[in-house]
Design a protein around this nucleic acid. Structure first.
Lengths: 138, 138
DNA sequence: CACATTGTACTAGTAGATTAGTACAATGTC
DNA sequence: GACATTGTACTAATCTACTAGTACAATGTG
């Protein structure tokens, strides 16, 4: 049974970037959600289909999908496929706070090692936030 | 010839943290600078002395010192030792801006993937910033 | 139930990061 | 100049992240 074989979005991999394939997949899904190209309930390509399309191993795609499911970005169901999560991120308040503290502390630590001040950080977040474009990750 | 064997600050390693030893050393120096325990020109423990103190290999300490020298946090001189840098971080304005943009964009990207808002980020930085006590010696 | 389609589990190979072992080079002190 | 003290260079062992190979399990469809 051949359903719609066209992917909801175009995936691509930058081999030379040094960024792991599975992270690149996650990032592209996140960006597509952020700018509206992917909406709630949309079905992602199957593990095998995307693996063939990108010429990588199915497990690598599965890993990307798996991590996104942990973050409640997608929902997976055997036999059906992987879909953009219907519900909003459902982290409870405690877990949410813990994660935010963790990544923020990491950010401040790195920034301070370069000698940046708090004022600079907050100013920059304000400026970059206006772009809303979520481009890179490390 | 035994000079003053007391270290300017106390170093310690968390073996279970998963954070590389050399990074822990760097972080502890950065924190000490941030809260004033280490000041410009202060001599750090010698590579060997700190290695013995922490029961690790001298090269691991050397790597920490080496990375800090690249960031202009410290200055090393063979025969003399390693000292907290006299001069301020000497990144030119352009490079400085580029680095701040890079790490900030990465932070916003990661945070947004968890659904955090800009307001939450800025609020958190304000709160955590007080703990970390960033250096404000502009 | 039969079979295709979907995600998953398990293992192994590869590459890079981290740390240690050992020896060397540069500098300071007398 | 002799010698101790300092950082450094080079190699190897070890560990972990990442990816692939292969086979399996769960679900949907007729």
């Amino acid at each position: 049974m051949v359903s719609d074989s066209s992917s909801p979005i175009e995936f691509s991999l930058d081999v030379k970037s040094g960024v792991p394939y599975y992270k690149q997949i996650i990032l592209q899904v996140e960006m597509a959600i952020a700018d509206g190209r992917l909406t709630k309930g949309t079905k992602l390509p199957t593990v095998r289909a995307l693996a063939v399309d990108l010429s990588i191993n199915p497990n690598t795609v599965a890993r990307a999908y798996g991590e996104m499911e942990i973050r409640n970005i997608v929902v997976t169901q055997q036999g059906s496929g992987t879909f953009i999560s219907d519900k909003e991120i459902s982290l409870d308040a405690v877990e949410r706070e813990r994660i935010l503290t963790e990544i923020t502390r990491s950010y401040i630590s790195k920034a301070s090692s370069y000698g940046f001040t708090l004022e600079e950080l907050i100013r920059h977040i304000g400026e970059l936030g206006c772009e809303v474009a979520l481009k890179e990750d490390t």
